[in-house]
Design a binder for these strands. Structure first.
Lengths: 255, 255
DNA sequence: CCCCATCGTGTGGTCTGACCACAGTAGCAG
DNA sequence: CTGCTACTGTGGTCAGACCACACGATGGGG
C-alpha cells in the first residue's frame, strides 16, 4: 500500500497501471522540471525531436503536451521559427491553470473545495518544513502524535488530536503566508494584495478594471447566473494576481 | 475586455485564441457534463464516433480525452466490448485529480497557494450566492462598492475596501462550509473530518493508517526530504477524504 | 553602409490510415 | 446446460501527410 513513491517524481496517478506512452513524456518533462534541468522560460525540444528521443509516436507526445498545457506548465505556439521553435515552459507553479478552472467549475459540492484548499495548504506546509534550514521545532506535533497512540481513544478524541497535529505542523512552519492562510486566509490575502501594488505600472487602469469587474460579479449574482458569476469572479481574481505576481516568462529572445 | 463569457460553459482558457480542434471536444463533453446530459457512470461515445460527430480528427479527440482523464473527469479502459465500449465518466467533482497533484507538487512559492486557495473559495462563494433561492443580502457588499467609487482613494484605501467587499460576499453566502473556510479553515476541516466518520466502515483500520502516515510525514520532514513529505501528506489527506467522501462511481454494469 | 521587403525553412496543428492487444460477445462443441 | 473458441470492435499507438504560420536569411533599395 505504502508502495514506492519514488517511482515517479510526482506519483502522477495511481500506481501499477498499464504503461502508457504519453505518460513517458509526461514523466520526462516533469522530472526535468522538478529537478531544475528545465527552467521557466526555456523551450522544450520539438515534438518530432521528443518523439524520437523518447521512442514514442508524435501523437503520444502531443497528448502529453496537451496535458501539460492545460496544466499550465507549458505554453505552445504555432509556427515558431526554425531553430528554436518548440514550447515555452511557463512558471511551474503557474497561476490558475485551465484545469483548475474546470475543476472548480465542475465541482458542485463544497467538500471538494475544502479538500482542495486543505490539500494545497498542507502540502505547502510540509514542503516548507522539510526545506527549512534550521530544523523546525516539531515538539508539539510529536507530542500530539504520542497522545494519539493511546489505544482507547474514541474517534472524536482522535480526530481532535489529528486536527491539532495538522495545525501544529502549520504553526511550526515559519512561512508567514501559509500560517496566515491556515489561520484565516483573510490577512494573508490582504497582505499579498498590498504587496502586489509595487508591480503595477498603472494603478489607475487596474483599479478601474477592478471596479468594473466587481459590478459585473454582483450583477451576475443578482441575476442568479451562476455560470457567469463563476467565470467573472475567476477572471477577476486571477487577473489581479496575474498582473501583480505571475510572471508569464515570455520568450527571452524576443527583442 | 469583458467579452463573451457565455461562449464556453467554463471559459476554459483565456478567450480570443485560435480555435483548436481538441477544444471543441473538451467543450462538448464539458457542457454535457455541466448540463447534466451526461451523468457519472455513463459512457461517452467511442473515439471514432466522437470524431465524426464533432467533425474533428481522432487525434484531436484523443488529446481532449487525455486532458479530461488527467483532470479526473473520465476514465478510459482499453479493449472494451463491442457495443458499449468507450469511456466512463467519473464524478465530476472528482476528488484530487492527477493534475491537482502535479500542480501542488510543482508549486514552489506560496503565492500560488494563496491564489489557488482564494480562487477556489471565491468561486464557490459566487456560485452559492448566485444559486441561492431567496436572493442573498448584498447590501453590505454594494455599499462597499459605492465607497470604492470615490475618486480620490489611494491604493491602500481601495484595497482595504476591496478586501472588505470580497469578505462581505463570503459572509453573504449561507454556505456554512465556505464561510467557515473563509474565516478560518480550521473549523471547517474539523467539522468535515468528523462528518466523514459515518462513512467509514472500519474506523480501526483507518485510524491505524492515519497514525502510520503521520509518522511518515514527520519522518520525511525531519529528513528534510521535501519531495517525500509532499507526497506523503498529499496521500494522507486525499486518502482520508477519498475514504469518507469521494464516490469513485465504478462501472455500474460490473455487478 | 543601413534598412526593409521577400522568400525559404521548420514548427505546431490537424487529419487520415493503419496495426496491435484486449475485452466482450456470439456461436459452436461437448 | 456448460465450457471453449473464434469474432468483433474498442482504445492505444504509430507513421505519414498536409496546412498555416513565425522566424531567420537573403537581397534589393535607400
Amino acid at each position: 500500500m505504502a508502495g514506492d513513491v519514488t517511482a515517479s517524481p510526482v506519483a502522477f496517478v495511481a500506481t501499477s497501471e498499464a504503461p502508457r506512452a504519453w505518460r513517458t513524456v509526461l514523466d520526462h518533462v516533469e522530472s526535468q522540471l522538478l529537478s531544475g534541468a528545465l527552467h521557466p522560460g526555456e523551450r522544450l525540444p520539438g515534438e518530432r525531436a521528443l518523439s524520437s528521443e523518447l521512442g514514442v509516436g508524435r501523437s503520444s507526445v502531443r497528448e502529453a503536451l496537451r496535458v501539460l498545457e492545460v496544466l499550465g506548465l507549458i505554453r505552445t505556439q504555432a509556427g515558431s521559427g526554425p531553430n528554436a521553435g518548440a514550447i515555452i515552459i511557463a512558471t511551474p507553479s503557474g497561476g490558475m491553470s485551465a484545469l483548475m478552472r474546470l475543476q472548480v467549475a465542475a465541482s458542485g459540492f463544497p467538500v471538494a473545495d475544502i479538500v482542495r484548499t486543505r490539500l494545497i495548504l498542507e502540502t505547502a506546509v510540509a514542503a516548507d518544513l522539510a526545506d527549512a534550514s534550521p530544523q523546525p521545532d516539531l515538539t508539539e506535533a510529536i507530542a500530539l502524535l504520542d497522545a494519539m497512540d493511546s489505544p482507547d481513544l474514541d474517534p472524536a478524541e482522535f480526530l481532535a488530536l489529528d486536527a491539532a497535529f495538522h495545525l501544529a505542523l502549520a504553526e511550526a512552519s515559519r512561512n508567514q503566508v501559509i500560517a496566515a492562510t491556515m489561520a484565516g486566509l483573510r490577512s494573508g490575502i490582504e497582505g499579498y494584495a498590498r504587496a502586489g501594488l509595487d508591480r503595477l505600472d498603472d494603478w489607475h487602469a487596474t483599479s478601474d478594471r477592478l471596479r468594473r469587474e466587481h459590478r459585473g460579479i454582483v450583477d451576475a449574482i443578482r441575476a442568479a447566473d451562476a455560470a457567469t458569476a463563476r467565470t467573472r469572479i475567476h477572471d477577476h481574481i486571477s487577473g489581479y494576481y496575474a498582473e501583480t505576481f505571475i510572471d508569464p516568462a515570455p520568450n527571452p529572445a524576443s527583442r
